[in-house]
Design a binder for these strands. Structure first.
Lengths: 163, 163
DNA sequence: CTGAGATAGTATCAAGTGATATTATATTTA
DNA sequence: TAAATATAATATCACTTGATACTATCTCAG
């Protein structure tokens, strides 16, 4: 009946499946999806700061710190001092990371092939368009977080964090 | 250009945004999305076992144990012995949880309203259909996990788990 | 120029998740 | 029917993640 009710759930399940599958395929790269994403985005933006890369990847700066720690130790990323700001670092992909980047490319192509199998070009575009639309909707709720908050009729004890 | 390249990333970002927004709205229920999902599914399947509920929710049984621990302590869920199997427990939503369930209903309706704003009924259906399709694709890769594994040209050291 | 506040990166802490092992009980097999 | 195996729930462990606090540095008001 009202299949839309499952929107949130399917989104969550889908994401988990996708990530799991990706990391299974990426096992031999010893990279998580988060790392691949960081490396991929860095490669297209050499010399940017950690703050900026975190923004691009849409993760917390602290999360990125750890991802970079790992990849720096593995020799795929370099942190150089920023000559204009002694607080900041500029980030670079090392030449050693080139084969990794190629692997990531292949991997993501395969992931997309698997995930989008059976959908033609038009459907794929539709899907992306719809997802981008939803994404934008959610981004704007972040900007005005109070706007539409549903107040429950009965106030319940607030806990720091549940589960 | 090739916007499809972002499919994996947008999926992940979307899911995180969605979850975050949901939990912001649900703060006063002191419930996470995972708990809401469990409670919601349990309410529709009173008397089932933990194993079964974990399957329905598509989470690990161990994860469910913890979710139930919390909700049982909060008095919203009951674990009763299974008369036919002394290993198992049967699960019930308590009457006290009724208002919570109503809140969850409202909340998820609002979430969907926010997330799907600007999409007409046809587009919403399209989106769900496409997501379900992708979901099925990924589910089937799980069944035959080796089928299409992309072997990298250069073998890299395998690590237990990366960042 | 100087002090107040902002900002970049990082350490620390609290919480959640999944994998694996464990225990009690069921089921199957010989 | 006794032994071997499977299963439901759970304890424990390892690993992520995000929130918050902290340090060094920058920027801006006065």
């Amino acid at each position: 009946m009202d299949r839309i009710r499952n929107f949130g759930f399917i989104l969550k399940n889908l994401e988990r499946l996708y990530t799991k599958r990706f990391e299974m395929l990426a096992q031999e790269l010893s990279l998580t999806l988060a790392q691949c994403k960081a490396l991929f985005n860095l490669a297209r933006n050499q010399g940017i700061s950690q703050k900026r890369l975190a923004e691009i990847c849409e993760i917390e700066p602290m999360t990125l710190v750890r991802i970079l720690d790992r990849m720096e130790a593995d020799g795929w990323v370099e942190r150089r001092p920023d000559p204009n700001d002694r607080r900041a670092r500029t980030l670079y992909v090392t030449s050693g990371a080139t084969p990794i980047l190629e692997q990531i490319d292949k991997l993501s192509a395969q992931m997309r092939a698997e995930a989008l199998a059976g959908l033609n070009a038009e459907q794929r575009n539709q899907l992306m368009g719809l997802l981008e639309h939803v994404y934008q909707n959610l981004v704007s709720t972040k900007v005005e977080p109070l706007a539409a908050a549903a107040r429950p009729a009965t106030a319940l004890p607030i806990r720091k964090k549940a589960q």
